[in-house]
Amino acid sequence: MSGNGNAAATAEENSPKMRVIRVGTRKSQLARIQTDSVVATLKASYPGLQFEIIAMSTTGDKILDTALSKIGEKSLFTKELEHALEKNEVDLVVHSLKDLPTVLPPGFTIGAICKRENPHDAVVFHPKFVGKTLETLPEKSVVGTSSLRRAAQLQRKFPHLEFRSIRGNLNTRLRKLDEQQEFSAIILATAGLQRMGWHNRVGQILHPEECMYAVGQGALGVEVRAKDQDILDLVGVLHDPETLLRCIAERAFLRHLEGGCSVPVAVHTAMKDGQLYLTGGVWSLDGSDSIQETMQATIHVPAQHEDGPEDDPQLVGITARNIPRGPQLAAQNLGISLANLLLSKGAKNILDVARQLNDAH
């Protein structure tokens, strides 16, 4: 009898209710805020589980004197976190989706994509230029951005401005803007500013005609071990179906173009009346040469937790077992079709030249 009692006690200790789920994140304040929001949602869904947040620095956090596009290494903000995932030191990792490459290392998958916040870019102005827009900034004003995508589009749109690289986390960039006289304004992701509670610093939100956004911008991705079915089931509740389908289309477009950090590629997606609209573009580094096109596809946005595919093969690095396969494939095909259209119009040449120029500098 006593033996059975011990077995029952052991089973209770090993039951999922007692389990601590370890969540990996970057150390920056924004990353911690984003991770806290994901953990809060998981806690609400699984009140019996405990969650421990483990923060670590990544290569991208450490190399702050070089433009991201020049470092010449993929997975700048993800490699150390993936290493911890691989060694079973954490069970899942919360990322900004735009930091996750469209091809993940073997053994990993994006197990959830959370509801997207505003994906557009924002302009934050130096205190002396508050009330201005990019259009009304004085001639030769210097605007800071760490992104080739932003610089290429904005140089084309605002030729009277000069664009220079600015690195560091959000706090560091804002301090550089406010305390030094080098920059009249800087460009940042609206979602990051909003998550930090800095709505009052948003001086201008850039519309798609001015600057399309990065693939996955404004959404959070939760990376897990691809074979860890328990954790895949656990994080599945975080999937937002519309965000998922938009981001599958965007990531398929980028992957098929073979774009990345070192080339200016941008997108804009919208879901309306059962249609998914995808606009994508590529630019030369100075913005003088560009190709942009829009395509659409009829896609039914499923309700969360309709029964999805059981075999769960990944699409552009994403596993969404609780979302039907048909809409996911339709979104992926839309991204591939748009990429093929741009490639047929000469996108590869623009991107190759951009890559060579970026590598040469």
Rank of each mutant, 00 (worst) to 15 (best):
R195L: 10
G221A: 07
H126Y: 08
D65L: 04
I54T: 09
D240T: 06
K43E: 09
R175Y: 06
H207P: 11
I54E: 14
T298I: 05
I291T: 08
S147N: 00
D233E: 11
G317V: 06
E310V: 03
T136L: 09
V316P: 06
V282G: 07
T172Y: 10
F163Q: 10
E73P: 07
R149Y: 06
T58I: 04
E89I: 13
R246G: 10
G131T: 08
L68Q: 06
I336A: 07
L338W: 01
Q356H: 14
Q34R: 00
K62G: 15
E52Y: 11
A219E: 05
V237Y: 04
F163G: 09
S57F: 11
L278T: 07
G317F: 04
L244V: 09
V124Q: 04
I54C: 04
V23R: 01
N322T: 08
V142N: 11
A347I: 03
P47F: 08
Q217S: 08
G326Y: 12
R321A: 12
D65V: 10
S28M: 00
H95T: 14
L81Q: 02
F108I: 14
D230E: 14
K87R: 12
K348H: 15
A112H: 01
E80Q: 09
F108W: 14
Q332R: 10
D311L: 09
T78I: 14
K176G: 09
K87P: 02
L206C: 10
V38R: 04
A339I: 02
L257M: 12
V124M: 12
E258F: 06
L64Y: 14
L148V: 11
P47V: 11
M271R: 08
V301C: 07
A320I: 01
D65G: 08
A122P: 05
D121R: 02
A40H: 08
T41P: 07
T133C: 12
N171M: 11
L92V: 07
M196E: 04
V39L: 09
I231T: 07
I323K: 03
L154T: 07
K345E: 01
F108T: 14
I113W: 05
G221L: 05
K87C: 11
D352P: 14
P105H: 12
R325P: 15
V237D: 00
F125R: 03
D178A: 06
I291Q: 12
Q356E: 13
L154W: 06
V130E: 15
K27F: 12
T102C: 04
N88H: 11
V222H: 00
G72C: 06
C114T: 14
V20S: 15
L329E: 01
V267R: 00
K74M: 03
V143A: 13
D233V: 07
E139W: 14
E242R: 09
N171V: 09
S147R: 05
G197H: 03
A112Y: 05
G24V: 08
V263S: 08
E209W: 01
P138H: 10
K140I: 07
L104T: 06
V222T: 01
L30F: 00
D311N: 12
K272L: 08
K348Q: 09
L206D: 05
V265H: 01
V202D: 09
I63K: 04
S69G: 09
V124A: 11
I318Y: 10
T78L: 10
Q292I: 15
P105G: 12
T172G: 10
K157H: 13
G197Y: 07
K115Q: 11
T102L: 04
L64K: 13
H239D: 13
L220T: 11
E210W: 15
